[in-house]
Simulated scan of single mutants.
Amino acid sequence: MQWVNQILRRIPVWAVYLLGVLPAPWLFYQALTGGLGVEPIEALEHRYGELALQLLIAVLAISPLRRFLGLNLLKFRRALGVLTFTYVGLHLLVWLVLDVQVPSQIWADIVKRPYITVGMAAFVLMLPLAVTSNNLSVRKLGPRWRSLQRLVFPAAVLGGLHYVMLAKGFQIEPLVYLSLIVGLLLLRVPFAGLLTRPHEADSA
Rank of each mutant, 00 (worst) to 15 (best):
P114I: 08
P198D: 02
P40W: 06
L158K: 06
I11C: 05
F68E: 07
L148N: 04
R77T: 06
L158Y: 07
L141M: 07
E200I: 05
L90Y: 11
L44N: 10
L127H: 04
D109H: 14
F85L: 06
Q30E: 15
L92P: 10
F76P: 00
V189P: 03
I116N: 02
Y163I: 09
R113E: 08
G37N: 06
P64S: 06
R146V: 13
W3N: 15
W107K: 04
E173V: 13
T196W: 12
R197L: 05
G160D: 04
Y87A: 01
I106P: 08
V118L: 02
V97I: 15
L151R: 00
L71H: 09
G49K: 00
V111W: 08
R113L: 10
L80Q: 00
F28R: 13
G183W: 03
Y177M: 06
L161T: 10
K75N: 04
Q101M: 14
Y17P: 00
H162Q: 10
L56P: 03
H199C: 04
G81L: 01
Y87W: 01
I7L: 12
T132A: 04
V102M: 11
N72M: 06
G169L: 05
M1P: 10
V16P: 02
Q171P: 02
I7C: 11
L161C: 04
P198V: 03
Q54M: 15
L158P: 01
F153D: 11
V94M: 12
Q6Y: 10
H46G: 05
V138K: 13
R78T: 08
Q171F: 02
L83Q: 00
R144W: 14
L141Y: 02
P128T: 03
A121K: 03
D99V: 02
L36F: 07
G49E: 00
L44C: 12
A201V: 13
M1R: 11
Q105I: 14
A43R: 08
S63V: 14
R146K: 15
A121W: 07
V88T: 04
G183I: 03
I57D: 13
H199K: 08
G70I: 08
D202C: 05
I110D: 00
T196S: 15
M120Y: 12
Q30I: 13
L180P: 02
V59K: 06
V138P: 01
G81A: 04
Y48K: 03
R10E: 12
Q30G: 14
L69Y: 15
S133C: 03
R139L: 12
L92T: 13
L8T: 08
G49Q: 01
G159I: 00
